[in-house]
């Protein structure tokens, strides 16, 4: 066995403790990817969202999400990685609906990553929270720990009827039963854009060059996607908005999805009191306490005035 090894000058050679220390310094420290190239971030402008649901549909088409049928959807086992939460305020006909698209928030300090015993979910160097389907053993821990409930479980091995299996995207794995899946920020598109950039001789992906399927299909342009490390990118500019908030920000999960609050007159405005969902949105923005939201919604169904749990 005459395997040649690279010669390293003994003076430059690091001891094993030093090497371990270096690796630990570069690894699993929140925000470590800032030293790397990208910090992929999504900004969702709720002022522009009209709740059409094309983002959800696009996600189904792009990521090979199984369509599970009426009975399964009826008990809440749909496989949508992106869901549109609808909060209804007021009573018919004086009614307003607020939409909140929720997908995996790609938290920088993600509770799910702590829970997985086998590293099926971990943080990659682009600041993405990625899920390795083949590694998953199905302990449900990640989804239990997730405060946003965005992870989806494959209850059965779902099949596509012929010829529908021919429309599946070849770039995304088909998942078998017993594993967890979730929004990946369309990682296959990010990989493709990086490859294109490399082929063109560029080091970085240009702003606007890559967009997940939901962002691409949004007719009102509510969803922007880009690199937060680039100060000139669209998301960096939008992230400076005064309307920004993180969903459940008080949990300190440091999400990569930034919401811009909807600007609207409250439905039943009264002096000194904010009402219903407007107050609830404030609550989410300022305190992240969403059970308040629920009470606000419930109460506004019955009563006309409500101070939103402040």
């Amino acid at each position: 066995m005459s395997k040649k090894t690279k010669y390293i000058d003994p003076a430059d050679r690091k001891t094993i403790p030093e090497r371990i220390k270096d690796q630990l310094a570069a690894y699993r420290v929140p925000g470590y990817y800032e030293k790397f190239d990208y910090h992929w971030t999504m900004v969702i402008d709720l002022d522009r969202c009209n709740g059409c649901g094309s983002c959800t549909t696009a996600c189904y088409a792009e990521n090979n999400l199984p369509v599970v049928g009426k009975s399964e959807v009826g008990i809440g086992r749909h496989m949508g990685w992106l869901r549109l939460e609808r909060y209804v305020e007021g009573e018919y006909p004086d009614v307003k609906v607020r939409f909140l698209p929720v997908m995996c928030q790609h938290c920088d300090s993600a509770p799910c990553e702590l829970g997985c015993p086998v590293y099926a979910t971990y943080h990659n160097q682009d600041g993405l929270n990625v899920q390795v389907y083949n590694r998953c053993v199905g302990t449900y821990t990640c989804a239990t720990y997730c405060p946003y409930d965005v992870r989806r479980f494959n209850w059965y091995t779902y099949k596509w009827d012929t010829p529908l299996e021919q429309q599946l995207s070849p770039e995304v794995t088909i998942r078998e039963m017993g594993i967890m899946e979730k929004c990946s920020f369309c990682i296959q598109r990010i990989r493709g854009a990086k490859d294109t950039a490399k082929d063109d001789g560029r080091r970085r992906v240009k702003d606007g060059e890559v967009s997940p399927a939901c962002g691409q299909s949004c007719p009102t342009g509510a969803i922007s996607f880009g690199d937060l490390n680039d100060p000139k990118s669209r998301v960096s500019i939008l992230a400076k908005s005064k309307r920004r908030y993180n969903l459940l920000g008080d949990l300190n999960t440091r999400p990569s999805v930034i919401y811009l609050r909807r600007v609207q007159e409250p439905l039943h405005a009264s002096a000194g009191h904010e009402t219903g969902m407007a107050a609830a949105h404030n609550t989410i923005a300022e305190h992240g306490s969403t059970a308040d939201t629920a009470h606000a919604i419930k109460d506004t169904h019955g009563k006309k005035t409500q101070d939103g749990g402040h």
Binding site: G115, C116, Y119, G138, M177, G178
Partner: peptide
């Protein structure tokens, strides 16, 4: 309880050709 019980041995930390290690931060570990 597990979704894929036939893979329980993946939670055992042993050096293998798959070069995969377990997450010692996890309470499940």
């Amino acid at each position: 309880h597990m979704g894929r019980p036939w893979n329980l041995y993946w939670t055992m930390p042993y050096p293998s050709t798959r070069m995969i290690w377990t997450n010692f931060q996890s309470p499940i570990m």
